[in-house]
Amino acid sequence: MDRSENPHRFDDLRALFVNCTLKRSPEISHTEGLIDKSRAMMEKNGVTTEVIRAVDHDIAVGVWPDMTEHGWEADAWPSLYERVMAADILVLCGPIWLGDNSSVMKQVIERLYACSGILNEQGQYAYYGRVGGALLTGNEDGVKHCAMNILYSLQHLGYTIPPQADAGWIGEAGPGPSYLDPDSHAQENEFTNRNTAFMTWNLMHMAAMLKRAGGIPAYGNQRSGWDAGLRFDFPNPEYR
């Protein structure tokens, strides 16, 4: 369908959801249950989506782009990074443990950071022009704390964060049902469903705006230019 007929089509966008559950496939992931809600909305509006369950991949620990160059025998991250870079939208998703993000989430963010020094063709950091969001599930407190960590990390690496770019579900504090458990009634939760819908649409809108504008304007933020001596009007006498 042509966008002139329906302005809310996003057939030129790709979205990647990285599920940072601690459970290997095919074990049920409650986080993936919430991912499926956002993913279905994107696909209905033309976005090509993909889900990676990070724990299924042999991702090395470290903060270099390819850890096989630093003593590790294997590292799946370089191939996963290609899939990250193919996406206009990146949503980091995971469970809450002890009020914080999972160890897998921390590892994924560290590996994203490992590639943050790579530049694009305009001399900007490579993640410029992409948008990021966060989805979280659990049966204890911590949704906002976890989202703050994820969204801060993504913007620091160069991602654009649209308004209300996070959503989550938690049950009652303490042991209890998880998102996909029938007695949780999580999938009928008005607060979670509204926030998930708003997050999904804001990610699509912002990603489309950036893509059709050619990304973030490449002036005043070019690492290659700064390294070459440009100071972009920075008011410091020693640079004049």
Rank of each mutant, 00 (worst) to 15 (best):
R3N: 15
P7N: 15
H8I: 12
R9F: 14
D12E: 15
R14D: 15
R24V: 05
S25F: 05
E27P: 02
G33E: 10
D36W: 01
K37M: 13
M41A: 14
N45G: 00
G46H: 08
V47D: 01
T48E: 14
V55P: 02
I59A: 02
A60L: 08
P65N: 11
D66Y: 11
H70P: 07
H70D: 08
W77S: 04
S79F: 07
L80N: 07
Y81C: 08
R83F: 01
A86P: 02
A87Q: 04
L90Q: 03
L92P: 01
I96W: 01
N101I: 04
N101P: 00
S102K: 03
I109L: 06
A114S: 15
L119Q: 10
G132P: 08
L135E: 03
D141R: 14
H145Q: 13
C146M: 11
N149C: 10
Y152S: 13
Y152Q: 14
H156I: 15
G158R: 05
A165N: 09
I170K: 09
E172H: 04
G174A: 02
G174R: 03
G176H: 00
G176P: 00
G176F: 00
P177G: 00
S178L: 06
L180F: 02
P182E: 04
S184E: 01
T192V: 05
T196K: 03
A197N: 10
M199I: 02
W201R: 11
N202V: 07
H205P: 01
I216G: 04
A218P: 09
P235V: 06
N236Q: 13
Y239Q: 08
R240Y: 06
